[in-house]
């Protein structure tokens, strides 16, 4: 188990180092200068030069990269070119929206997908299965931004149960905050739930055909008991993989949903930073997301080992 973990950890560190270089190069190569963007069309060249100097943009790319990486290792992400506040502070504030939103959406998605997948697997080929599979097909096909707009139309404009967007903040209590995240969380969760339910169902069906399941039935367990005791646990590996991927997706991929609901989250920050060429913000947020994705995958790898004892001895 230890060797397995160390090996995973090493590959995590290499991935991060490579990612930092790729991110920096890709973003720095894009045309556009943050200082000219800030100063607009009437600025004189000397003014732009003065701002570039003020922002520290007049040093070489290599120096900037090294400064960025060493800074990050010490937990310092630098200062935003446009906002002029520490990037780490900006990210921290945005995480208070994006992280709860991702967790909320993931919880909803799991709560919907597990019962739906198990139900469909248990009633394979029957009307219930067909209905659930039909619904998931629809869930996969619907783009989440369109679904988000429909939610707003129904629940915000017509029924007035929720605001059309914005985030109420956590100051007024957990419920107020969650209330304002509900529509975006549903919009994010349903397509994910559809995928997860399908994976859950097919993983269970694969397991149901296994010899040990027949053995379990033969020793006198009911269908339901075999499903819960032996089937579910063995079906969890592919499901965990998908949940891991989905969490990363929800954290990084909520950009469009954050636009539709004008939530002050990480996605919106990246969106604004890209258009204003606030390179350091883009680089740092993308790096953080890469870090999150890689870490989640690392944790999922460890979780495999917990679920499947065979992986612990295999190195």
């Amino acid at each position: 188990m230890l060797r397995y973990s160390l090996k995973r950890l090493l590959s995590l560190l290499i991935s991060l180092a490579v990612a930092s270089l790729v991110i920096f190069l890709v973003i720095e190569v894009a045309p556009g200068d943050p200082a000219s963007y800030m100063l607009g069309m009437n600025a004189q060249p000397d003014t732009v030069a003065a701002l570039r100097a003020e922002l520290g943009l007049d040093v070489s790319k290599t120096d900037r990269y090294l400064a960025w990486v060493t800074g990050m290792l010490q937990g310092d992400f630098g200062t935003s070119y446009t906002y002029r506040t520490p990037v780490s502070q900006m990210i921290a504030v945005r995480l208070w929206v994006s992280l709860p939103l991702a967790l909320y959406a993931l919880t909803l998605s799991t709560l919907i997908a597990f019962p739906a997948g198990i139900y469909a697997a248990a009633r394979r080929g029957q009307a219930g299965d067909v209905a659930v599979m039909g619904a998931t097909q629809l869930g996969v096909a619907i783009p989440n931004f369109w679904f988000a707009m429909m939610l707003v139309l129904i629940f915000a404009i017509n029924l007035r149960w929720f605001g059309a967007g914005g985030f109420a903040g956590w100051e007024d209590g957990l419920l107020t905050g969650l209330h304002s995240l509900t529509l975006p969380a549903i919009a994010l969760a349903l397509p994910q739930a559809a995928i997860l339910a399908r994976v859950m169902r097919s993983a269970l069906l694969d397991i149901l055909g296994e010899d040990f399941m027949r053995t379990a039935r033969a020793k006198g367990l009911t269908r339901r008991q075999t499903l819960w005791r032996h089937g579910l646990r063995n079906a969890l590996i592919p499901v965990l993989t998908i949940i891991g991927l989905q969490f990363s997706f929800l954290l990084a991929g909520a950009i469009i949903i954050e636009q539709v609901f004008y939530l002050p989250g990480l996605g919106r920050l990246v969106f604004q930073a890209i258009s204003s060429r606030d390179l350091i913000v883009v680089e740092s947020v993308v790096m953080l997301l890469v870090f999150a994705v890689i870490t989640v995958n690392f944790l999922v790898d460890l979780a495999y080992a917990a679920v499947d004892p065979r992986l612990r001895s295999r190195t």
């Binding site: 800030m38 600025a43 004189q44 000397d46 003014t47 003065a50 100097a53 003020e54």
Partner: peptide
Amino acid sequence: EDSVNAQKA
């Protein structure tokens, strides 16, 4: 000289 006023003109 080091002004960063966008409308320095």
